[in-house]
Design a protein around this nucleic acid. Structure first.
Lengths: 342, 342
DNA sequence: AGGAGTCCTTGACACGATTCAGTCGAGCGC
DNA sequence: GCGCTCGACTGAATCGTGTCAAGGACTCCT
């Protein structure tokens, strides 16, 4: 493996000069610079990142840990992060915890070993203590799609409670009185907040808590959605919910699939609202009403916050940025002329 | 930042002993080992990956470069890779070229700087020369979803030509005679192969090449699909294709959206076939006929091939693994009783 | 001519972990 | 008691780069 020493001897200069050509070209005369660059090209020299980072002490790398790579919400968010991080000349390590605490821990260890400058994370658990410890050890942490409780971390989130409220209020206005909430696992803050919003809409509407049935799911995936729908349809028809609000669009698409398979019409028999407004929501069998989040901006903002924190260092004050969600109404929840109020 | 030296002095042993505790615990007496481990925990020591790798010379990291993170095909594939790589105790750096040669180059440089053991890549261009050079410099390369031409690299792919053939033969059997192929950019091998398969089906069916109209797209995304559909509908109705075969499902979903928006019925007015059979294909407005690829197995196999190459080192013989695609027929291409043969 | 200033270049050290030859002491057989 | 082996540990060299004080060559000015 060719090193800076080989380049130096081959080009007839010292190692320091080669290093300067790479890092501070202005300090080197143009003739020398050209000769060194030619040698680098000829030998196929690529600087050793490990040595470089060891010497510099800190890396120009940032970690991103998401709950599910297969969820378009997170890939869109990742694109936003990547744009901002890349523009700043930093590199991104993209990690997928898959909602598993063990994997999250493993990746956080990996990122610490890599001495990343910062971590953008949607944590599996509300593990602020662990994240605080990470921060105390010099790793800047920004919470993504999760609000920091006590303002000791930067966070970028969307008002999930409001989102849940918008969704369920919309269903109430369409005349629904028995509504099911499909979401899980419960340990996810997002799920709990969206549920809390749904409850608020329910009680504001003068109904009892019990009018909202929570169908817990093991994950936020299409498959889990199908399972939940099957459970929903297990109930006798007269008690069955007439509307379903899902904590994300993957679940909603799964629910839609199972309902269709069992010949339940949407929205005639059961209305459906999702969350995230991923690209596929509009393209679904029945175009999906959903709560839209500014995904890419979320990622960009979080990355910008992290970069700010990295630069300002000491004088930094943590910020909580909260975006507002927006209800996008489509066919899956259309109000029907014939529906009675109960 | 706490280093191995701090741990050593704090625990009253030498640096070498601390290192042995971490890497060869058997060489250390259990009493010393316990004391060192306690100190590590107390000080919150995490080994510096850069120093470690600098010393060891080679990393335990593998790079994965895909064309589009937002495409579920690639995230499913990535999951397969991650499983296999993770099980082998290696780490994965996940990179998204976004179909952009410049970004791909930048990421390959990054990976070389990181001294990764190998790279799994779906290249933007048919850049075998550049990849060969990468391999010659000690980086193992496995082509993903792309067949190696001259057997000088391992590759894992699906028979795209067969896939294209299956799709178009199916449409021919349903009575279609004017078929459009939507796909792009042309530089992608996958697109060209699927098109070639389509052409083969066309000519085997006794039709002329010209019966297949190629609508080129700038990317393989939902948006690009919408644009292509708009162009398709620009043609006068009597010459217009009665069926569309898309080079991937995102394009097909885009086409479907635009057709629906313009009140063209699928499959009555225009039949539609996609490619990849992503999870959302079955959940589409009109469930999508698609060519299924074993995505996760593709990733697992490629990762296993790479691991094999890394281990065997010299005595390795490159392999070309080719999976067979499978046509999944759904509503979007159902044969209609009333359709005439031309 | 000599001093000051500018522009390039050099050479040695440091970063943190691994590795290996070598030290030390204990245990063993004779 | 001597020599030997063995296990446990030490200490220094090393990986490839960045940094910086110091030095060399050259020009300009008085």
């Amino acid at each position: 493996m060719v090193s800076i020493r080989d380049v130096a001897s081959h080009a007839g200069v010292s190692m320091g000069t080669v290093s300067n050509v790479l890092n501070q070209p202005d300090l080197v005369s143009s003739a020398t610079r050209a000769r060194v660059l030619a040698t680098i090209d000829e030998l196929g020299f690529v600087p050793n990142h490990a040595a470089r980072q060891l010497r510099r002490g800190r890396s120009r790398t940032v970690g991103l840990v998401v709950l599910d790579v297969a969820n378009p919400f997170f890939t869109d968010l990742a694109k936003g992060v990547e744009d901002t991080i890349g523009t700043a000349g930093m590199a991104l390590i993209f990690c997928n915890s898959d909602g598993d605490q063990t994997r999250e821990d493993a990746y956080l260890d990996l990122l610490r070993e890599q001495r990343v400058r910062g971590v953008l994370i949607t944590p599996v658990d509300d593990a602020s203590a662990r994240l605080l410890r990470l921060r105390d050890r010099g790793v800047h942490v920004v919470l993504l799609d999760r609000r920091s409780r006590n303002a000791d971390l930067c966070s970028v989130s969307v008002d999930d409670r409001l989102g849940g409220e918008l969704a369920v209020r919309h269903l109430l206005e369409a005349g629904h009185r028995r509504i099911a909430f499909v979401g899980g696992p419960v340990r996810l803050q997002q799920v709990r907040d969206r549920h809390a919003g749904a409850i608020r809409a329910i009680t504001d509407g003068g109904l009892d808590h019990d009018s909202l049935l929570w169908l817990d799911t093991s994950a936020s995936t299409v498959t889990a959605g199908r399972d939940a729908a099957a459970r929903l349809l297990g109930a006798p028809r007269e008690n069955r919910a007439t509307a379903v609000f899902c904590a994300n669009d993957l679940l909603a698409l799964g629910v839609l699939q199972e309902l269709t398979r069992q010949r339940i019409r949407v929205p005639e028999d059961i209305a459906l609202v999702g969350y995230d407004d991923i690209e596929f929501a509009a393209a679904a069998a029945i175009p999906l009403t959903s709560v839209r989040q500014p995904r890419q901006r979320l990622g960009q903002t979080a990355a910008a916050l992290l970069l700010g924190e990295v630069d300002e260092a000491a004088a930094h004050r943590h910020q909580q940025v909260v975006f507002e969600p927006e209800l996008v109404v489509r066919e899956s929840s259309h109000r029907l002329a014939g529906r009675s109020g109960g």
